[in-house]
Amino acid sequence: MRKLIIVFILFWHFPVNAEKYIVASQNFNYYPHYNFKSSTHKGLIHTILQEFSAFSGHQFEYRPMPVLRLQRELEKGRIDLIYPDNPLFNNQDIFAKGKYYSHTIVRTIGGTMVNKADLRKDAANIKRLGVLWVLHHN
């Protein structure tokens, strides 16, 4: 994810009235980025927006929806932000016009390490998985 359509970063620099924004995401669990159905850990973007909300008074409502609806709903003005979003995800001629992308707020590197003896085992054999995420301030 290089650039995201999270314009809330701009709000930190310019005074605005507290408002309610609708944040849309793909309708599946994409933890550690988001899991809005969780009662405890809703993910990175929820944590970031909650911190911003405490500072600014803005409120955020989260709406999961099918991937193909995200850009159309944004174009229609029914949602305010999409997370994650990247200009490479979309048809530039149709959906990228007039959109603002923030600087990168998270970079993802994925991988796993297993014992040599476990190389051919499938996912059903996994008992524990650790997830690490770190926020960097530039």
Rank of each mutant, 00 (worst) to 15 (best):
N86C: 15
N27I: 02
I82F: 03
N115G: 05
F14C: 09
H137E: 10
E19T: 05
Y62C: 05
N17I: 00
E51T: 07
V7A: 07
V114T: 03
H103D: 09
D80H: 15
E75H: 08
I79V: 10
F11C: 01
F11N: 06
K76N: 12
M1I: 05
S102L: 08
P66S: 12
Q26H: 12
P32L: 03
L135G: 06
A124Y: 12
H46V: 02
N35S: 10
R63L: 13
E19I: 01
L132E: 06
E61G: 15
A117W: 04
R128V: 00
P15I: 11
G130P: 00
Y31W: 05
I105T: 08
L70Q: 06
G110P: 00
E51A: 11
G111Y: 10
S56M: 04
V106I: 11
M1P: 03
A18R: 06
M113I: 14
K127P: 03
I126P: 05
P64V: 01
R120D: 12
H33G: 01
F14L: 08
N86S: 15
R120C: 03
N138W: 13
N29T: 12
F55H: 15
K37M: 04
I109C: 05
W133R: 02
I5K: 11
T108D: 12
V106N: 05
V114C: 08
Y83N: 05
S39K: 14
G77N: 12
E61N: 15
F36M: 04
N138A: 13
I9W: 06
L88D: 15
G111M: 08
K116Y: 04
K3C: 01
N29K: 15
I45L: 02
P64L: 12
E61V: 15
N35T: 02
H13E: 09
D122K: 09
A54G: 08
R2E: 04
K20S: 12
S38K: 07
A54E: 10
M113S: 14
V114S: 08
F55L: 14
S38W: 03
I79E: 00
G130K: 13
T108H: 13
N90P: 02
L88R: 13
R120L: 09
H136L: 14
G111P: 05
G110I: 02
R120M: 04
L74G: 07
T112F: 07
R107E: 12
K42Y: 00
L10R: 09
I48N: 04
V67P: 04
I9S: 08
F36D: 04
K20V: 00
D80T: 09
P87A: 12
M113Y: 13
H136E: 15
M1A: 10
Y62F: 14
D85F: 06
N86Q: 14
Q59R: 14
R128E: 00
P84V: 07
Y83A: 04
T104R: 15
F36Y: 10
N27P: 07
Y100S: 07
Q71C: 07
K127Q: 14
R69N: 12
H46F: 09
Y21L: 13
N91M: 08
T112D: 07
Y101V: 06
Q50V: 02
Q92G: 09
H58V: 01
A96M: 11
V131D: 02
H136N: 13
L68W: 10
I82R: 03
F89S: 09
N115R: 14
F36V: 04
P66Y: 11
H58Y: 02
N35W: 00
N91R: 11
